[in-house]
Computed example of a mutant assay.
Amino acid sequence: MWQFFLYYEFPPFFFNRCPSYTEPQNLTSVSEFLLMGVSDDLELQPLLFGLFLFMYLVTMLGNLLIILAVSCDSHLHTPMYFFLSNLSLADIGFTTTTIPKMILDIQTHSRVISYVGCLTQMSFFTIFGCLDSLLLTVMAYDRFVAMCEPLHYSHTMNPCLCGLLVLVSLFISFLVSQMHNLFVLQLTYFKNVEISNFFSDPSQLLNLACSDTSTNNAVMYFIGAISGFLPISGILFSYYKIISSILRVPSSGGKYKAFSTCGSHLSIVCLFYGTGLGVYFSSAVSLSPRKDVIASVVYTVVTPMLNPFMYSLRNRDIKRAMRRLLSQTI
């Protein structure tokens, strides 16, 4: 009876220490975590609130315009723009998973996230992050077929294959997310409840556990390596073939047009994978948490915001469709 009273009288943070053999297991259960956010400086909070709110609104508006332009313009009903609209949807979900929570925490001066909320955020973050990675790979394959096998492009990239590639990417993303959740659900005790980031990072949750998580860490990093290495390998192979094909084009104008077609996609790939993999594997060697936060901001906020600009400002078809859409709306 005393144990029952003790458990419900004190907050969960009172028991967020590693258990000893004399402590009952239910005394150490954690129901909340603390997200440390981007900065602890109180004077910077209004600036961060306005900055991230502006970036989130720009991200939503830009990606929604891409989706509307592709869906409303029949000239854009091609595999490349089909994948681009799905990438915009994934970017919207990827950003919405983390940024609104961070903006709300800054406004309410509260950094608490429940255990269930932490798992939910981690699950959707992994789904949309992995989906982004796989869609970038699919888009690289689409460019490979268009550049290297132009005569067979319409036959190869048929609507059934395009839809199947998106569905397979979504299924793999869901599977990777559930594997991450499975590892975290096995953790019972935590030596700390402070997550040194603005979202629920699965690798940091493993580092906060009291029990020996070396096996879980090894398996999780192996999954991350596979889910990151295979898409990167596919992208590198596709662009190796694309560049080899472009170099065989006799005219300089044709080479420039081909490179400009793939340049925006390659820029987003470098930005997304460079920062994402850097953050993912940096936790394995315990680098500075502040550097991880900055890199996390780049690939969770900046990259989804830049995607619409990278694809629209250098693409005449997208700009023409957006002008037509805006003129019809006005």
Rank of each mutant, 00 (worst) to 15 (best):
T95F: 07
A284M: 08
V145N: 00
L175S: 14
P308Y: 04
T28H: 15
E9L: 12
G37L: 01
T28W: 02
G37I: 01
H152P: 02
S288I: 10
G62M: 01
H180P: 04
L206R: 09
G224W: 06
N207P: 09
Q3L: 14
F10R: 12
K257P: 10
S31I: 01
N307E: 13
D201S: 11
Y299H: 06
I113L: 10
Q121A: 05
P46I: 05
N216A: 13
F82N: 06
F124S: 07
L44F: 12
K255L: 13
L34G: 00
I330N: 15
V112F: 07
K191D: 03
P46G: 04
C18M: 00
S110Q: 13
L167W: 08
P202T: 06
T329H: 14
Y299V: 01
V166Q: 02
C118W: 03
I172L: 15
H265R: 04
T188N: 03
F272T: 07
G254Y: 12
S114Q: 14
G254R: 08
S31Y: 05
L64D: 07
F13R: 12
N181W: 02
M80F: 12
P202C: 01
N26G: 02
K101T: 13
A225H: 11
L131N: 06
S260W: 11
I246V: 12
L165N: 09
Y21L: 08
L271V: 03
V279D: 01
I92G: 03
I294N: 06
G234M: 01
E194N: 14
S88A: 12
T215D: 11
V193C: 00
A295N: 01
F13W: 11
A90S: 05
G263F: 15
V168C: 10
M80H: 13
R314Q: 10
I127G: 02
V302S: 01
V219I: 15
T275G: 10
K255E: 09
S296W: 01
